[in-house]
Design a protein around this nucleic acid. Sequence first.
DNA 1: TTTCTAATTAGATTACTGTCTAAATATAAT
DNA 2: ATTATATTTAGACAGTAATCTAATTAGAAA
Lengths: 96, 96
Amino acid sequence: MSSNEAFKALADPTRREILALLRRGEMTAGALAEKFDMTKPSMSHHFTVLKEADLVTSRREGQQIWYALNTTVVQDLMAWAMDLIGDGNKKGAKKR
Amino acid sequence: MSSNEAFKALADPTRREILALLRRGEMTAGALAEKFDMTKPSMSHHFTVLKEADLVTSRREGQQIWYALNTTVVQDLMAWAMDLIGDGNKKGAKKR
DNA sequence: TTTCTAATTAGATTACTGTCTAAATATAAT
DNA sequence: ATTATATTTAGACAGTAATCTAATTAGAAA
């Protein structure tokens, strides 16, 4: 299960806040870093973790790097949570 | 945000497996521990973490302790994930 | 080329986490 | 009371993770 990386990434509150900021659209590394009381290298580390967990994507534009939320992995996590709470009748169960 | 504990609890694959085992109903500490290649004290530690995160409940019955999934916290997490991926047009979001 | 800005990488430090063995607690049974 | 069973608590240790400062890379502008 490769989404272990995603779960570990979400365990840090700073990273969850980063994702929340990215809800409305992409942001540059610098713009994101400004929002936190933390050095840029530390922020860069969090970006790396999020990227490796596939929770964000990145692209360079000139000297800035834009980060964006990757919603597909979040959807996978949601599916995991739904499976956990879903009534036991849906998973491989053929309907009647 | 107290659900920080829940996110941290979910970061460990053993704990996620425990939750998965509890999907179909409660189990005793011993029955759960048997399913893993790990000492009982280690398993007990995981139970504690899950309990503190409110992801499971427990009750004693004689000399055994029964653990059960607490679905309400999982639902909260699902809500968090849904909010993350929900389209930004819900509220007053101006397009860029 | 030199300089400026944006961002990352390297290395160190500190704190936290998962796991173990050994000991303790709680309940039940003899 | 003693013994047995189920589970937790205590303490130690190794590995991991978050953060910092200092140095480096990448691109733009001069």
